[in-house]
Design a protein around this nucleic acid. Structure first.
Lengths: 346, 346
DNA sequence: TACCGGGCGGCAATCGGTTGCCACCAGACG
DNA sequence: CGTCTGGTGGCAACCGATTGCCGCCCGGTA
């Protein structure tokens, strides 16, 4: 019930007493190389090591206002799409000697808000991956602390995003080449920026390519959500489906399978993100691979630059190229659809 | 380049001045209900709200020694096995109004050590999921801060673990019933406690059931590791394989497939953990499901109890039951193996 | 009216660092 | 030999909260 858990740890005062110098000298010896004579400094380092002294980062914060910590907030850690983003962010943070803490908000904007409110005083900056917050809420926090968004664009807040427009065009072209004309887009969360952008880009690409694009949803961006979407997908069944993300696509394939619809024979399916596991589902998923790791590294690098005083101002979003990975879930449509290209399937 | 990023936030001093009271009164009004007269308290709350005041958690820490934060360290966040653990830990932390931060150490003991060293002064407690550290290193930190380990047992440190012994027995019995006699265990990281325990339990079960158990490895606990293991698996090919975890099992199935070995016709495969995606691989994986969510909740609940002064002392590990989930990757062995049970496969 | 007790609010110390300012001392130079 | 200069190290204020202790004032009671 004591106020301290565990025994209390040594402080600069302990080191100072042990060395017979003032605490300020210890502080300087440890953090301002050259400020203290070599002899004294050496003695202090030695005693500090012997006592196992380590600066209390929280006490350090008060005078300096810096914690050396940044937080990466992900909208749902249960989605493998974040793996590479996290890894990228970690490596960039480690390279700059920042501590990266991770926070999951389970697709809940309220929780996201709470977390940010709680952390705004304790971290040097925010990296938001696929935030579900409103633009206004994001900007409000961005005014108080350096911030970057990943996979999301908000006016006045620096961001790094995959090239969704180009990606959707690739996906559309791939389907057009196979001979598809009727495509359904399976929507993710309405609060998802990427969802909106992908839908618009797909619609535009569809128009250019002479395809009819429908949209259903929204659905939760999970396997369960995709399974539920399958039921809505079959009437009328398009010849191809593009889903907001891979989880949704995989769930939809499972649901279609349960409904007796064959992929890719009866309908082609394309996902987005190229997550872990999108290659081991059946059939292996054709998907639009986002540059996820780069999203993480570039985002955090920029964030740290801002923390170190770089001007955050105007600059446009950093757009990174996407890539279409063709696997087994796409094929030419069945004959019934009329004007299909020459050869049969292969 | 200013020392503060963003404008500086209001403090109790600002609120106090605005209200014409002392800072201590503001502090009490905000955190000790009843200590201050209703009238004053109301005025203070109103002004605080108007100014958008929020306590600086770091400043709060110094006098109290408590941050209200606990950290969950996972050995590799890229493994879906942690999803339920994280979710469970989050819910338990949220219920107790603690902030949970997540830290990934990418299977690196050095990094795990660094992270713990860095956080030991800034968090109230540690939850270690599947730590790769030595027992001594774990105990050293456990002496300084409350700690629980999940999926790992270390003397003197409270822990919560799945019942590996019982689980491996289930797996062995399942294979024995199908008629298997020669089983190979595919090892995970040598620093993994669960790996050791699972191997021992399997060997013991195998002896009782009259099966020959071999072991190969160690391999990285990833899909790539499993793929590599497949090559070592085929000579001599056993009739069944049990892998340290699902990722390894899935990778092994891919590798076996590439080698022209059919699962489950030529060899049965069992994984451990029942991760997201173990049901959408082909064939769907038979696996030993650990009580992952409970691992997270029970672990964090216990940790918070310790922080609040519960005695951490003796108590044995909390053991939670596992469950075997039979899917499509296990079947009776081929005839060549001699004494197989009556019926053919079905 | 005098005294007592309790509610309420203020003072100031404290947590563990950082840092501006100043004093001291030694060596160099005129 | 006196003064200047620069290298060292100490003093004390400060960051923003919490909290022990004390004093004031008001009301109740003898």
């Amino acid at each position: 019930m004591g106020k301290r858990n565990g025994e209390s740890l040594p402080t600069i005062y302990d080191v100072a007493r042990e060395c017979g110098v003032a605490p300020s000298t210890v502080s300087r010896a440890l953090s301002q190389p050259g400020r203290v004579s070599a002899k004294t400094s050496e003695r202090i380092h030695e005693v500090a090591a012997r006592l196992g002294y380590q600066a209390n980062p929280l006490a350090k914060y008060l005078p300096t206002g810096r914690t050396g910590t940044i937080v990466l907030i992900v909208s749902d850690i249960t989605n493998p799409v974040y793996f590479p983003v996290i890894r990228g962010a970690e490596s960039a943070a480690a390279a700059a000697e920042y501590t990266l803490v991770l926070s999951d908000v389970g697709e809940s904007p309220e929780r996201e808000r709470e977390v940010m409110e709680k952390l705004v005083r304790t971290v040097d900056g925010f990296a938001l991956a696929t935030s579900r917050l409103t633009d206004a809420a994001i900007r409000a926090v961005a005014r108080r602390r350096p911030m970057v968004t990943m996979n999301r664009v908000t006016q006045q807040v620096p961001s790094v995003v995959p090239d969704n427009g180009q990606g959707m065009r690739y996906a559309g072209e791939h389907l057009a080449e196979l001979g598809h004309r009727r495509v359904t887009y399976v929507s993710g969360p309405p609060t998802s920026w990427a969802n909106t952008v992908r839908w618009r880009a797909l619609r535009a690409a569809g128009e250019q390519l002479g395809m009819t694009i429908r949209r259903i949803g929204p659905y939760a961006p999970t396997v369960a959500g995709g399974w539920a979407a399958a039921a809505d997908l079959v009437s009328p069944l398009p010849t191809a489906v593009i889903a907001y993300n891979d989880l949704l696509a995989i769930g939809a394939m499972q649901g279609l399978h349960d409904l007796g619809v064959k992929v890719p024979d009866d309908v082609s399916v394309i996902g987005c993100d190229n997550i872990l596991g999108s290659d081991w589902c059946t059939p292996a998923l054709t998907t639009l691979a986002a540059p996820l790791r780069e999203l993480g590294t570039r985002g955090v690098q920029h964030l740290i630059a801002m923390i170190n005083g770089a001007d955050a101002r105007p600059r446009r979003p950093l757009v990174l190229p996407s890539q279409l990975i063709v696997r087994e879930s796409t094929a030419p449509p069945r004959d019934e659809d009329g004007d299909r290209p020459g050869s049969g399937r292969e």
